[in-house]
Structures are given as C-alpha cells and as structure tokens.
Amino acid sequence: MKTCISCGMPMTKPSDFPLEDESKDYCVYCARPDGSMQSYSEKLAGMTGFLIRTQGLDEEAARQLAARNMAKLPAWKTTAAD
C-alpha cells in the first residue's frame, strides 16, 4: 500500500491519487488542480485550516501541530529542519 509522502494518507484507490495517476507518490489532497504537488507552505496552510475547520483548534496550536506532523513525513523531513 502506498502512503502519501506529503500528508501520510494511505492511498488505496485511483481516486486517492491526483488526476487518478497512480504513479504519483502524493495524494489528491496534496495536489494542486493541475496535479502537481503543493509546496510546504501551501500544505502547512491546508493542514492548519483543516484542524481549525473540523476540530476547532486555536490557530497557532493548529499550525504547530501541522508542522510537527509534516516534519515526520518523507516529503518534508529536510524542509522542516531548516
């Protein structure tokens, strides 16, 4: 099973992939409309927004949690250490 390198989501069906392209290592939620992968800052903003919208977290707490989670993922391991 493939796991998204950017957010960690398991990818099990074609619709989990950007434009249903199963050769990609990142998921549909980590892609831009054209199918390319979102940047670190785009993804950080997206994950922060998700935590606020669905769980009601404080903005700064959500941003820090998102950053800590991203730091563990293959796509961002080095970026986050900067």
Binding site: F50, L51, T54, Q55, L65, R68, N69
Partner: peptide
Amino acid sequence: DAWINIQSAVSFHF
C-alpha cells in the same frame, strides 16, 4: 500528537 491524529482521521471523514 499521535493521539490527536486519531481525531483527525475521524474529523476528516466527518
């Protein structure tokens, strides 16, 4: 953080 990630898995589908 790992504990909160369970809630995120649920809140995503919710």
